[in-house]
Simulated scan of single mutants.
Amino acid sequence: MKKILLIFLLLGTLVFGEILVGKVIKVYDGDTITILVDGKKEKIRFFGIDAPEMKQNYGVESRNFVRSKIMGKKVKVKIVNTDKYGRKVGKIYYSNNRYLNLECVKTGNAWWYEYYAKKEYDLKLAQEQARRSRKGLWREKNPVNPYKWRKNKK
């Protein structure tokens, strides 16, 4: 039993403690990118945030914010897990270790995805500050959480 547990822990560390470094070759929206790592494409979903969908209010602005920061540039991704679509989910760092997920929330370009990142208090605080300051999507009178927006479209 101890051997099985040890193997499980080691495998989990390999997959979820993984760090990828690659060039951003596509920005789909404000929370999903593709990077090129050693000639292999990796689709990455940002951990802890949920950006407006492209057809949702502020979706284009959110994507353009991410593009302006990292398109064509080298990023480091700390993998946290894998989502139900098989995408790696991670924390994105660029230019001298700047944490892009946090920047997206601070500037009002994404919501803190509380359901998946309850303990990410830096994201929670950033959202509270962006909301109070009416930054980005918080300029709208009644911004709609992307999760609710997607649910209503089904």
Results as ranks from 00 to 15, higher is better:
6 L>T: 15
11 L>A: 10
13 T>M: 05
15 V>C: 00
16 F>T: 09
19 I>S: 11
23 K>I: 11
27 V>N: 00
29 D>Q: 04
29 D>K: 02
30 G>I: 11
32 T>W: 01
38 D>G: 08
38 D>S: 13
38 D>F: 06
39 G>F: 03
41 K>A: 09
41 K>T: 08
42 E>Y: 04
45 R>Q: 15
45 R>K: 13
52 P>I: 02
57 N>I: 11
57 N>R: 10
59 G>C: 01
61 E>M: 01
63 R>M: 12
69 K>P: 01
71 M>T: 10
75 V>M: 00
76 K>G: 14
77 V>M: 01
77 V>A: 00
78 K>Y: 12
79 I>C: 08
80 V>G: 03
80 V>P: 06
80 V>F: 06
82 T>R: 04
84 K>T: 15
88 K>I: 13
90 G>Q: 01
92 I>W: 03
92 I>V: 15
94 Y>G: 15
96 N>E: 07
97 N>I: 06
106 K>M: 04
111 W>S: 11
111 W>M: 05
113 Y>R: 04
114 E>G: 09
114 E>S: 07
118 K>P: 03
119 K>H: 12
119 K>P: 00
122 D>W: 10
125 L>S: 07
127 Q>M: 10
129 Q>G: 06
134 R>V: 15
135 K>R: 12
135 K>C: 08
135 K>T: 02
135 K>H: 01
137 L>M: 15
139 R>I: 11
141 K>R: 14
146 P>G: 08
149 W>E: 14
149 W>C: 14
149 W>A: 13
